[in-house]
Design a protein around this nucleic acid. Structure first.
Length: 569
RNA sequence: CGGGCUGUGGCGCAGUUUGGUAGCGCACCUGCUUUGGGAGCAGGGGGUCCUCGGUUCAAAUCCGAGCAGCCCGACCA
């Protein structure tokens, strides 16, 4: 491609609206432009990278039993009502009505469509297993789109759905996809980590996320430094530690804590560590108020609590609710003498003795409080978010580290959630109707573009790997001598004949502009053609990935370039 | 939805405190010179100062309301 003809509007300065590297660089490198928050147009360079990723994903998917289809973006509300997700997915969906007043949404995902698609066609166990995938734009009315393409309201996703006769079949399908994902991310050159994950609104049992470790990641991953345990902190199990228990129950006492409403405040006021305190919270799970107890130095993990309660919605209770339940303003609430509401405590509360908690009296806390003797707990479960340095729940030897990650893939064992609600059944060997057992498997195509850039850039711009680079070679003719132009054109033609994707910077720009744009858009090999080098009968080549410079003899440049290309990552 | 910040040529910003009719850098157009890491000189085009309402002789600037964007929290590929 000739750059004089390429629609490539690069920017010298970082746009004010972008503050992570990948977002800044995608705008600066002319890969995309924003239409609305989280909604982008992809320009030639950006779309080329997207297609590279799509094709790698497609090739690897086609090596499995999965077959490519294309499902509708516009979906009738009926199927969402059948699966009971019309309300549950709720505000995340863009909903609208057609002229006949029928309700529709723009597809945020395709479990309903796929289930509807197969339910009339798959009638016998002989039709199973079946696995279908598509690569398509998803639309979600995200609460807060951000970080460019990282969390968009429109994004391209590869989603696959497996249909099996039973759970053993699902395990096989899941394993097949798992392995395909490992291959895909290897080919994409992304350093990913597979972690156990929450299945969230998709429902189902097992679930793994494929995470790219990156500073700008929105998820936290807990990783054991000794075994291979790795999980999203949303569900990473907390090790049930059994500390030395102080058996001597001291007499409960009331302590004056004027205007001290937070754990931190108590820590400095009383000079006692938060681990000796009981944190009391009131949460509203759907319509039920629940009292939650945690150790003072722990954080409530809302995903764990939501899952434990099997709630659709979880939010902190209002101040009015708190006053009604505890008879006191927030800051001084505690579990003592609370009996009309369910009290759920983290495991770590069980072994606490002589602790401090709110007294349900303004400006007062109790000291020397212990469970059983002083207050009742209805249920103990794992509610805390794991922390750096926690003992690993798996091997119980290593310590957990926490790293930020970008979720680029997510696989779920859905089970029969959709097939049951939507009536997708088959007849087994005995002629008995059974629900199809399903799995779903997503890869965020556009998010991978951002993740790849996050993982590979420098001060000058993007550094593409060979397989994602929109072009492999960029030729920079410098100066305007006929000889330079002639050589550049020859190189350009030759590379095209060789089937190598090549850019020719034939713009009437100064050397500095060309160098800087070449660096910015991250083309792996740059060939500089100038009178200086032509005099010596050489081509100057720079490897963008390593920064190395080479002078190659112009007489056998084809071989040299092939060699340099093959050495690229 | 809550909290913070911001809206001024295509982009990045100043001007707002103290009202007087809009400016800088980049980009763009023309000409000349230049041409190996974002050129120089000269000339030029382009702005409902987010919107609506108010105060005033006069509003980018003051007041009110609204809208939009960005960032921090709950959602997810």
């Amino acid at each position: 491609m000739r750059m004089s003809k390429l629609y490539l509007p690069t920017l010298k300065e970082d746009p004010a609206e972008a503050d992570i590297k990948s977002h800044q660089l995608m705008l600066r490198a002319g890969m995309m432009r924003k239409l609305n928050p989280g909604i982008f147009s992809y320009l030639p360079l950006g779309y080329r990278v997207i297609r590279k990723i799509e094709n790698i994903v497609r090739e690897e998917m086609n090596k499995t039993t999965s077959q490519e289809v294309l499902l509708p973006v516009m979906q009738t509300a009926n199927i969402w009502k059948e699966s009971n997700r019309w309300d549950k997915f709720g505000p995340l969906m863009i909903k609208f009505k057609d002229r006949k007043d029928h309700e529709y949404c723009l597809g945020p995902t395709h479990e309903e469509v796929i289930t509807d698609l197969i339910k009339d066609e798959v009638r016998s166990y002989k039709d199973l297993p079946l696995n279908l995938y598509q690569i398509q734009t998803k639309v979600r009315d995200e609460i807060r789109p951000r970080f460019g393409v990282m969390r968009g309201r429109e994004f391209i996703m590869k989603d696959a759905y497996s249909m099996d006769a039973d759970y053993e079949g699902l395990d096989d399908s899941y394993q097949e996809m798992y392995e395909a994902y490992v291959n895909i991310f290897n080919r994409l050159g992304l350093e990913t980590r597979v972690v156990k994950a929450d299945s969230g609104a998709m429902g189902g049992k097992d679930s793994h996320e494929f995470m790219v470790i990156a500073e700008s990641g929105e998820d936290d991953i807990a990783v054991c430094d000794s075994c291979d345990y790795a999980a999203n902190t949303e569900l990473a199990k907390s090790y049930e530690e059994e500390k030395n228990i102080d058996k001597d129950l001291k007499e409960r006492k009331l302590i004056d804590t004027p205007d001290t409403k937070t754990i931190e405040g108590l820590e400095s006021f009383l000079e006692i560590d938060g681990s000796k305190m009981i944190k009391t919270m009131l949460m509203k799970a759907d319509d039920e108020l629940v009292v939650v107890l945690l150790r003072g130095d722990d954080q409530l993990n809302e995903v764990k609590l939501t899952n434990y309660l099997q709630a659709a919605n979880l939010e902190p209770a209002t101040e009015e609710d708190i006053i009604e339940v505890f008879g006191v303003k927030p800051g001084f609430i505690g579990p003592i003498n609370i009996s009309d509401y369910k009290i759920i405590a983290d495991h770590r509360i069980k072994n606490m003795r002589n602790a401090i908690c709110g007294a349900n009296i303004e400006d007062k806390h109790y000291g020397n409080v212990s469970p059983v003797r002083d207050f009742n707990v209805d249920e103990y479960t794992d509610l805390r978010t794991v922390k750096v340095g926690d003992l690993c729940p798996e091997c119980e030897e290593g310590k957990l580290e926490i790293e930020p990650g970008i979720e680029v893939g997510h696989i779920f064992k859905l089970g029969t959630k959709y097939s049951e609600s939507m009536g997708a059944t088959y007849l087994d060997e005995n002629g008995k109707a059974k629900p199809i057992v399903m799995g779903s498997y997503g890869i965020g195509i556009t998010r991978i573009v951002a993740a790849a850039i996050e993982q590979s850039n420098d001060q000058n711009g993007i550094i593409w790997t060979k397989d994602l680079a929109p072009y492999k070679i960029i030729i920079l003719p410098l100066g305007r001598s006929d000889e330079v132009n002639k050589t550049s054109e020859e190189l350009y033609d030759t590379f095209q004949e060789m089937g190598i994707e090549v850019l020719l910077d034939d713009r009437n720009e100064r050397a500095g502009v060309k160098f800087n744009d070449a660096d910015l858009i991250g083309i792996p090999l740059r060939i500089t053609v100038g009178s200086r080098s032509l005099e010596n009968n050489v081509l100057e080549v720079r490897n963008r990935q390593t920064g190395e410079d080479f002078e190659i003899n112009i007489d056998n440049y084809k071989e040299e370039i092939k060699k340099l290309l093959s050495e690229l990552k």
